[in-house]
Design a protein around this nucleic acid. Structure first.
Lengths: 215, 215
DNA sequence: TAGATTGTTAATCGATTAACAATC
DNA sequence: TAGATTGTTAATCGATTAACAATC
């Protein structure tokens, strides 16, 4: 019945937005007021038309000859991504990876605020790791509901990934950022994004192999 | 002059190989001898023909009706990725993220062995973090050359990313796994793969926004 | 054998790039 | 004004999916 059959936006474009945002924020310090796609493309090693298409999904409007107003563009990207209003998140699994995610201060710039962490290890429960308190896993529901947290970050071992995801869904979480190698089964009312470090490494090592054998 | 103009393999296919490998290794424990694309696709939520195309890049040959021999398939993927012969790597920047990468034992299964870490912080130099010794940055060349290390992992802050990458290149490293948000300038004799966690988060938060506004 | 499955060619789909009118 | 730049439509490119003969 809806007039616009929203197919969403091209994932490759959305993936490039944080790169533009990072670049534009740096540029802000130089006092520049306007920026064109030509300059962005040059500095980031892309072609201008791709930058234009990517930025267009944020609904930003530029002016011929001058380009985009820098601050308006930054706002538009943040708005599109939802990074101007902080998202609260829960983190499950305070191992090496979980601690790193807790400690990574870059997420603040991306509107992500981890409000509580959870683990099964009694030694960790009650501890405070990088300003975040670690709770027992059975407290997820209580804390999630109290603050109506929408995002869950999964940094647990693979063998408990699905059950951890289930707990997050039951607690009302709407989005799961999955750092485990497990393919999660989720209701389609929940969005999930897999961080697959091994995919990235696969590309690196296979290209390294190509480099060597080409000689 | 070369007969085969090697365009490389489709990046999306290469990115999916670790997922198949993970799945197949788990399957090994069940004692199964053969596996078909239909089964793989079912279990991973893909379509059989895509699995077949993906696996074909490893040069594996299957048999109609029975599928692929499980162990041969695992071998073929490992071979293609270069994950059966361990790759030695150096890690630059022992902060939160760097420590997590050092501590992540999953990389062992992916043929990656971090043999030394480097930092500028005098307090960290000489320490051993997760079985890896931390050296002064000016030791990179010496250690890289002695072991002819081919891979460098960049987990330094963004503002020293380029100079750190330069040091790795000078030390003879052929591949850089870049965890910083910086776009690196590198000679084309060096391959580089960017781990962009923010791209992944962008997709998650923008889809979460779509989910909420759709209601 | 019959039917499941492979390997491959052709068709489709979506993203990137080219072309160009509009405009400041 | 002249020329750089935007926004958009059309062409190209590459990945995914469909179709199907070969085969075990």
């Amino acid at each position: 019945m809806s007039a616009d059959i929203d197919k969403g936006h091209p994932a490759p474009s959305v993936r490039r937005l944080p790169m533009y945002l990072h670049y534009l924020r740096e540029l802000r310090n130089t006092g520049k007021k306007n920026i064109s796609c030509t300059h962005i493309a040059n500095d980031l090693g892309l072609v201008p038309v791709q930058v234009r298409k990517d930025l267009a999904i944020t609904k930003i409007v530029g002016r011929p000859k001058t380009g985009y107003e820098l601050l308006a563009l930054i706002d538009a990207i943040e708005d599109f991504l939802g990074w101007n209003t902080p998202h609260e998140a829960l983190l499950l699994g305070v191992g090496c990876l979980g601690s790193a995610v807790l400690g990574y201060d870059g997420f603040a710039e991306e509107g992500l605020k981890i409000v509580a962490a959870f683990d099964t290890d009694p030694k960790k429960i009650g501890e405070t790791i990088v300003n975040t308190k670690v709770y027992r896993v059975d407290k997820i529901q209580e804390i999630a509901e109290a603050r109506s947290v929408q995002i869950g970050i999964l940094t647990v071992p693979g063998d408990v990934a699905q059950q951890s995801a289930n707990a997050l869904v039951e607690a009302g979480v709407r989005a799961i950022w999955n750092y485990t190698p497990v393919k999660l089964e989720l209701p389609d009312t929940v969005v999930c994004e897999d961080v697959r470090l091994s995919s990235s490494l696969a590309l690196l090592t296979s290209r390294l192999k190509g480099l060597c054998s080409a000689t």
